[in-house]
Simulated assay, not measured.
Amino acid sequence: MFTISKRRRVATAAGAIGALALLAGCSEGVVQGEDGGGEDVAAEETLTLVTAAMDGTPNAAVQDWFLTEVEERSEGRIEFERTEAYSLCDAPEIADCVRDGRAEIGVSIPDYTPVYFPSTSVVSVPFVGQNWQGITHSLHELHRNNADAEAVMTDNNLHFVGTWPVGRMLIGTHEPLESPEDLDGLSTRVSGPLAINLFEGEGTNVVSLAANEVYEGLERGVVDSAAASIDFPVNYRLNELLPYWTDPGVGEYSSFGMWMNLDTYEEMSEDLQQVIDEVAADLAAGAGAEAFYAQATEQCPSMLEAETLEGFTRWDEDITAAWEEETGDSLQSAWVDLATEQGLENAESVLDEYMAGLEELSDPEAQDATLTCIEEFSNQ
Rank of each mutant, 00 (worst) to 15 (best):
V70D: 01
T136P: 06
D111Q: 13
M54Q: 11
D100G: 02
T68H: 07
D55H: 06
G36N: 07
G37C: 09
N59K: 01
A103M: 12
G106D: 10
N59S: 10
I78T: 01
A53R: 14
V50H: 02
G36Q: 05
T83Q: 09
F127M: 10
P114A: 03
D64K: 09
V98N: 10
G129N: 15
E93F: 03
A103F: 11
N131K: 15
R73G: 00
V115T: 14
F127N: 11
V115S: 15
Y112R: 07
G134S: 11
V128R: 10
I105L: 13
L47H: 03
Q130T: 13
A60N: 08
V115I: 12
Q130I: 05
S108G: 03
F127K: 08
P126E: 12
S124M: 02
V98G: 09
T136G: 11
D64A: 11
I105N: 05
D90Q: 13
M54E: 12
V128N: 00
V70C: 07
T83W: 05
I135G: 00
D90V: 01
V98S: 09
D35V: 07
E79I: 00
D64V: 06
E69K: 13
I78M: 08
T48G: 02
A85S: 15
S119F: 04
V125L: 08
A95I: 06
G33Q: 15
V50Q: 03
I135M: 14
A42F: 02
E79R: 14
G36V: 11
D90F: 03
E45R: 04
Q130F: 01
G134H: 12
G33K: 14
P126L: 04
Y112W: 04
F117D: 05
A43V: 09
E34T: 08
E44M: 12
E69F: 06
Q130E: 05
P114G: 07
V128Y: 07
S124D: 09
A53G: 04
G106A: 07
A103H: 07
E72I: 02
